[in-house]
Design a protein around this nucleic acid. Structure first.
Lengths: 123, 123
DNA sequence: TTTGTATTTAAGTATTTGCTTAAATAAGTA
DNA sequence: TACTTATTTAAGCAAATACTTAAATACAAA
């Protein structure tokens, strides 16, 4: 970053200082929330999360069928969600059922609400 | 996708069909919400959005100073947010003030709430 | 114990992302 | 008019992303 030649003449020094402090005080939140949003900010994964909310649990095979995409592709999305502690796995014979974890539901719930509201709005 | 050899024997055909219909009915929501979440799912942009909520409006120069990153880098994030209709610009002399648009506040508000709640929790 | 089913993992690849530096606009000021 | 100042734009590049195909793993049934 060499191009740092911009401290505005009219800049409010106090405001800038206060903003920096706010960022610092919430740095953990930005990191954590940012990671969750990055995961949800992919259309395929957003659909997976929505489906898990609706159906309680689903396996990679069914998700592949529902989403119309290959099983490895689905599996790799599931792994990311699992690594992010957003979903968890339950094994039953040779099929593995994925479901939402409670931990991040606080963040996700509003999304599902918005999706369902918009659906109502268009009917 | 050649590897489509997985329709589970125990698969619930009705469930799969129902899921496909839910996705179809909400396809516009998934696209729109996905785009907003993809934008918010970047730590720098999440911080920018939070700061705009807190301060009402900020210019690229101040944001660069607050975030500790180059002006072009900030400017490019702002452009993405503007292209996504999440923020808008107001010109005053040679400085440009960015602020949140109302349109997507419904999605963003819960994030700000979560950030502030977590901050309280750690104090 | 061989065969089939469900899933993951690994390697390869095209695309996207987020920065960098340098140049271009645009608007004030000397 | 020339000279800052604030911002954007463009080009280049390293890293991340999201898929593909092929191989590996794990379990169940014949």
């Amino acid at each position: 970053m060499a191009n740092d030649t911009c401290i505005r003449l009219q800049a409010d020094i106090e405001q800038i200082k206060s903003c920096r402090e706010k960022l610092k005080a919430n740095s953990k939140s930005f990191l954590q929330l940012g990671q969750v949003l990055a995961l949800a900010g992919n259309e395929v994964r957003l659909k997976i999360l929505f489906l898990l909310e609706e159906e309680n649990e689903l396996c990679p095979c069914d998700l592949s069928d529902i989403l119309g995409m290959s099983i490895p592709a689905v599996s790799q999305h599931l792994r990311k969600l699992k690594d992010g502690n957003i979903i968890e796995a339950r094994k039953e014979g040779q099929t593995i059922f994925y479901s939402l974890r409670n931990e991040h539901l606080k963040v996700l719930k509003p999304f599902f609400k918005i999706i369902n509201q918009q659906n109502l709005a268009t009917v």
